[in-house]
Design a protein around this nucleic acid. Sequence first.
DNA 1: CGTTTAATTGACATTATTCAACCCGGGTGG
DNA 2: CCACCCGGGTTGAATAATGTCAATTAAACG
Lengths: 258, 258
Amino acid sequence: MDKVTYGDELFMTKSLLAKISGFFPLEQELEADLRKLAFRSVKLSAGQTILSAGEKYKQVLLVDEGWVLRQRHVGGGGRQIVNVALPGDFLGFNAVLFDTSDFDLIAKTDVVVYPIEIQTIDKLMERHRGLASALTWANGREESLLAERVVSLGRRDATERLAHIICEIVVRLQLIDRLHSTRLNIPLIQEDFADILGLSVIHVTRTFRRLTDLGLLAYRRNGIDLLDIDGLKRIAGFDDAYLHFSLRKDARMRPSAS
Amino acid sequence: MDKVTYGDELFMTKSLLAKISGFFPLEQELEADLRKLAFRSVKLSAGQTILSAGEKYKQVLLVDEGWVLRQRHVGGGGRQIVNVALPGDFLGFNAVLFDTSDFDLIAKTDVVVYPIEIQTIDKLMERHRGLASALTWANGREESLLAERVVSLGRRDATERLAHIICEIVVRLQLIDRLHSTRLNIPLIQEDFADILGLSVIHVTRTFRRLTDLGLLAYRRNGIDLLDIDGLKRIAGFDDAYLHFSLRKDARMRPSAS
DNA sequence: CGTTTAATTGACATTATTCAACCCGGGTGG
DNA sequence: CCACCCGGGTTGAATAATGTCAATTAAACG
């Protein structure tokens, strides 16, 4: 994260808090924690490497704006994208937990993040209960997304896989109130889809063609027109349960007074 | 978890504590927590369903003995195994966190687990710091394993994938001191490998044949002879970093006195 | 032993990859 | 303003990887 510029906003944006509090009920406690720990934003421009595999890292990033890819380069020029982070997602928790990162973090668009310094995890966990539960939740959800990706890569064909990831992105954008029409503005090119889905670029083209021929969508540069989202979900066998919109009720945190 | 028999051992076995404390340095605190929360063992027999997808669940299981598969049935009779739990691993944390499970948990061998009741997660996190950090660590590591599986499924061919999962299992067994020779006793059949690797059974057969012809291993029912583990690692592009043998040093928890 | 489950083999179909050529649209510099 | 260029995207043909089906063998077990 070399060339960063500090944001002009000194405090956590309201909209980000809204996004997060949709997930975490203890708004005051979490908000207080975040204001204390993530007091300034950092801007990164599209294409920047935020974190490289193997690099040591000491902060967690809370995404406020933009798309970030977590990816690994494999021997022979290949690349696998393991997940896509959107506003409201945390980045780099594993890198902090385990000292070094297994993956590269790449800003796919211009990005705004709130870095949270983590000296020792236990101190953090003790003193900032709101953030601790947020991270626990985020990591659990991340794990669910990855498990679903494993299912896709292992047991769904190209058409199902592509339809599935599009459905996932649609629902995740809706969750953070970023999608209001059938026009899905997506900064990914077909090569990115290929590296998410474990396919060749050319096969991704053909698979988009198939979905187009089925009347489900229309692919354009920088976007997809969603013509039949239910059809997409049907063909993908998409069930949004794994996105875990909320914690179980009795796991919701109590006010910090305790 | 219908037909369970209660273990005759009333307390956590020493060997399990040893396994876990290899990962978690704060032995006394964790041990105290575990003794309090996981005071009796439960035995399950091979083939039993421990937990079904969609089922509500209120306890985390700490595996003491045996192999457990976390899997999902997909439309059309298929199955994807997302991971394999070995002694020392925690099960069902996500199911507890999110109220219901996304996956089935199947005992592949006879299994002994220590159930840990979780009323509310925040209480647990507050009162049992040792366990809280263990779960945080376990979930993070789980996430790393899944990310690596995504890389395998997305960008490695059948031979690399098979070699890779064998390497992973070998190293994980060594970590818990369960492998002392070149004989790898493994309760998985080729169909299980197929459903882990996203391949057909027949292709798994062919791929074992290829590894055999390369002089790397010999497959038998109930086991694999490891003839050239370094060769396997080489062909798989296996780097054990993602297994995260230990937490970063300054993340190690302090005594609970605080 | 005979039965059952798992592994194996061969022939063939399908899916996805690779390579090569071409298209298209938006910028840029002359 | 236009010609060119370049990053994406598309298409077709040939090839490689993996899947399916059907039949056979081998090992394990009562």
